[in-house]
Design a binder for these strands. Structure first.
Length: 620
RNA sequence: GGGCGUGUAGCUCAGCUGGACAGAGCAUCGGAUUUCUAAUCCGAGGGUCGGGGGUUCGAGUCCCUCCACGCCUGCCA
């Protein structure tokens, strides 16, 4: 609704400016005025034009103003604040449209953008998920939901590093500390009395201690790593058992916060299906990497990160910035494997995975997993036109290298469509850590956060989407900017309808109960004017802005934008709820109107909550 | 040393490509309900936007510089 009006305003404004001043204006900037009574939309472009036209902004605005209207959806316009053009929207028209629109969604227009591939979660499969992982998954999942809301085709991938150091360490633990065979590990993970993911976590911690006490033990890690990479022997068998079992635990955990996936991409297949070999050949052939025969990187294949042309080189003999892609022992570094994976995402690799069904959610949705020997019937995974990697900010450098590799391979377009959605690492506040029973050193207590290692405590609130610091007390509260506050708003709205139906049993669910049929359009105008009209209108405006907010959240890769907006809507609704008593309203037309507002607000709220994966309980 | 990021109220953070009086939540203090669930609502106090320069009609926002902190700069991921 808002999107269309904004588009019309932009177009008209640009056209008028073009006609009057013969100046082309790229994209007129629309804002929301600071106070609602000033209007619903404002154009600040006259300030910009003032420079070009050498006229005061106020004068330009006054000249443009009369030619802006009539415009569908806009009732009147005014000039204020020394050059702003403020637009007052057609309240009755918009309200009427929204009352009938919001509940049955308008058909989303199919997007021409192609497939959006979003990779998130990507937890090492060697321990239970902790609060930081949960937050990151929720962040990624919300982003997925935003794209889907907009009507785009989205594929969700979860990268499973099942051949890496972290899994290898747990394997070392099972073999050398626990002295267990693969068969015994299998028995253990089938034992319902054992929480296998936590068991592995403890084991992982014990192995880390082992390394610290005796550096010689690190040789065990290398041994395990090699066996796992080559996929042979008892160790590889244990690695596969561990990672598969833990991934199942992760899927369960994520399901509880309504996070789902389409495909699990395993590193083992990247290795075994020679994805890397293929990418390596490509990199060599296109000269993106070179073999070092001398210096400290002798024997390695490296990629130069010099973005600048060769012209300015040689002024100073600085060490060239170089990233090792292939180690001198011939194995690929993580970046190398990541380059191969990303090439596949864009169908730039002359290879494809096999796929097998891995898990089915209660709603019937299937999660597939890569496999060496695939089964037929898998969807066409990959082949993305845009790819997002939801990964923490510490990996920014590595993500940049993947992009650089794309450019070096002469895939500038795909490089531009490769996005790193970087989030900050989650830490516990020292207070929270101590509450969880973690002993802190004096040094840690001084720090602003403690690295997450706790296993208890999960709270979902609106700004988990923006918070970096996790504090159990804060996360578990029910007041303020929290999930329960938002949920409660919806419950309150629904209660009104429940009670209303008790006294109006003739209103069965369905089209007949649509109260907007019962509010004559001419009455909408008077209901939406005056002081209370202003309150009602604010509710309508906030609801109408949902699509605009979603656009903004996607464009800035900042889902918290949505969380903030939902909170504002809930606040406005609670205020409204407090001031106007709906069921005792004597005027039937006004009561119907109020009911429409309640439904608009509560539908928009629950829809927005759904975008964040939050459900609304029937009672609170 | 280089790269990236952060620094806004006591605490945790918003502030979109520079624009109309610096915002929210929590915490503190003071109020509101014979009503559709008080998990609510209203109000108050509290900020030289890290410091200093500069660009501009206008800077929390852009540029320079300094300070503090974090991350990266591994033949770990």
């Amino acid at each position: 609704m808002y999107l269309e009006i904004q588009e019309r305003v932009r177009e008209r404004f640009a056209k008028v400016v073009q006609e009057m001043f013969a100046v082309a204006i790229a994209e007129p900037v629309l804002d929301i005025p600071p106070r609602p009574e000033m209007g619903d939309l404002s154009i600040s472009s006259c300030f910009e034009l003032a420079r070009q036209l050498r006229q005061p902004p106020q004068k330009i605005a006054e000249q443009v103003l009369p030619r802006l209207l009539p415009l569908e959806g806009v009732e009147r316009a005014s000039v204020a604040g020394g050059g702003y053009v403020n637009l007052h929207l057609d309240r009755a028209g918009i309200a009427a449209a929204l009352f009938s629109l919001r509940s049955p969604r308008p058909a989303t227009q199919p997007s021409s953008r192609g497939k959006i591939l979003i990779e998130h979660t990507s937890i090492n499969p060697n321990k239970a998920a902790h609060i930081g992982h949960l937050r990151n998954a929720v962040l990624g999942d919300t982003f997925v939901r935003l794209w889907r809301f907009r009507g785009d085709q989205v594929e969700v991938q979860n990268y499973i590093d099942n051949t890496g150091v972290q899994v290898a360490d747990v394997v070392v633990g099972f073999v050398h500390v626990e002295k267990k065979s693969a068969a015994e590990v299998e028995r253990l993970l089938r034992d319902p009395a054992v929480r296998f993911d936590y068991f592995c976590w403890d084991l992982y911690a014990r192995v880390s201690q082992l390394y610290e006490q005796d550096k010689e033990m690190l040789a065990l890690r290398l041994e395990a790593l090699k066996a796992i990479e080559e996929g042979r022997g008892e160790m590889a068998k244990i690695a596969a058992l561990v990672s598969t079992a833990i991934v199942r635990k992760h899927l369960e955990t994520m399901r509880r916060v309504n996070v789902a996936y389409d495909l699990l991409v395993q590193e083992s297949e990247i290795l075994r299906l020679d994805f890397w070999k293929c990418a390596f050949e490509l990199l060599k052939r296109r000269g993106a990497i070179r073999y070092e025969t001398s210096g400290k990187n002798s024997g390695c294949w490296v990629m130069s990160l010099e973005e600048a042309g060769p012209g300015e080189a040689g002024q100073e003999i600085e060490a060239e910035e170089v990233k090792i892609i292939v180690r001198s022992n011939g194995t690929a570094t993580y970046v190398g494997k990541d380059i191969a994976y990303h090439l596949w995402k864009f169908a730039l690799l002359d290879k494809d995975f096999g796929f097998e069904e891995f898990h089915r959610y209660p709603d019937g949705h299937t999660v597939w997993r890569t496999a060496v020997d695939g089964r037929p019937g898998a969807p066409a995974f990959g082949r993305a036109s845009v790819a997002y990697s939801v990964i923490d900010t510490r990996q920014s450098y590595l993500q940049k290298i993947v992009g650089a590799a794309f450019r070096a391979l002469n895939y500038p377009e795909q490089a531009a469509n490769l996005h790193h959605f970087a989030y900050e690492v989650v830490g516990l506040s020292p207070r929270c850590a101590e509450e969880l029973g973690i002993k802190l050193s004096a040094d840690e207590r001084e720090r602003s956060y403690v690295e997450v290692s706790g296993r208890r405590g999960l709270g979902i609130k609106a700004d988990d989407l923006i918070d970096v610091l996790f504090d159990l007390k804060e996360a578990m509260t029910f007041e303020g900017e929290t999930g329960p506050y938002l949920q409660y708003s919806v419950v309150r709205g629904r209660n009104i309808f429940r009670k209303y139906r008790e006294s109006h049993p003739e209103l069965s669910p369905g089209a007949a109960e649509d109260p907007s049929d019962l509010v004559p359009p001419e009455q909408l105008n008077s209901l939406l004017s005056g002081e209370s009209g202003q309150n009602f209108w604010e509710l309508v405006v906030l609801a109408a802005q949902l699509e605009t907010i979603v656009e903004q959240a996607i464009a800035t890769a900042e889902p918290s934008v949505l969380a903030k907006h939902v909170f504002r809507l809930a606040q406005a609704f609670n205020n409204f709820y407090h001031r106007y008593h709906i069921l005792s309203e004597p005027d039937p037309a006004r009561q119907n109107f109020l009911l429409c507002l309640v439904r608009l607000a509560s539908d928009t709220l629950s829809r927005s909550l759904d975008l964040m994966g939050i459900e609304v309980p029937p009672h609170m």
